[in-house]
Amino acid sequence: MSGAEFVPLSLTPLLIGICAAVACALPGNFLVLRRQALIGDAISHVVLPGIVVAFLLTGVISAWPMMLGAAGAAVIAVILIEAVRRLGRIEPGAAMGVVFTAMFAFGVLLLEQTDTSSVHLDVEHALYGNLESLIWLDATGWASLMDPEALRGLPSELPRMALTLLAVCLFTWLFWRPLKISTFDEGFAGTVGIATAPLGLALVIVAAVAAVAAFDAVGSIIVIAMFICPPAAARMMTNRLERQVAWSVVFAVAAAVSGYVLAGYGPLWLGGADAISAAGMIATMSGVILAVTARFGPCRTRTGAPVQG
């Protein structure tokens, strides 16, 4: 395919998809190991009331208020879950279920109550995202990457997602040792002077930030899938955290690229006319990767020993 077609139509969605996938997969590694994998699920549900409230307050569909609203809703949800868990002495899973379903229902109700027919804001959008529509109209070919005029026309999701990815990488790199120690042995981490509670909260907040930023571009399906599937698949491959993180990044990129390509070109190869949902396809591909590693990965069993020949 020529650059003239690829760069404007596919390059930016692909890059955004990759950034979102990696930004979610990195904190996902720790969440899966800490058995908090469903935090991503909860966050991606409560994002809906957040953006609806932000829309009602500002009256416009623009990125920053909606991201702030979504982040606020995520923080409120985390606090509420903790409050319900402690005040009601309820197990964490049920507390999470109570809070995120109620908040999601509230979001749907608000959406139905307000007149959003004039703007593009609906539940389906929140779920599927609109990865395919993030095209770069100003680009004419590979040369546009050097052209400041054309670069100004980049969809704003790309720099935002790249920035988020950078922040997530920075967090993981800076707090690598404390994160690693407190993930595997919280008691020991406490005795060597690591503040485990704030660190755990920080991890959840970083995950929420990644989820909210990714959600804006690609919808909540990818967010949940990328929090869980690549790290889970990576866990089947190795017993070392460093390699697991590396594998999860590889798997996330692989899922994003293959999913996007299959969604965009797969139907054409099969003789169809229209593309299918890229977000859904990326999630599906991550599932395929997980299925393959769960069946053949060298460290898939619980004991962790590599399976002999």
Partner: peptide
């Protein structure tokens, strides 16, 4: 596999 139940739930749900 070695996955905990929450990861399995999330994986099945999203995929």
């Amino acid at each position: 596999t070695r996955l905990a139940e929450d990861a399995a739930i999330g994986a099945v749900l999203s995929v």
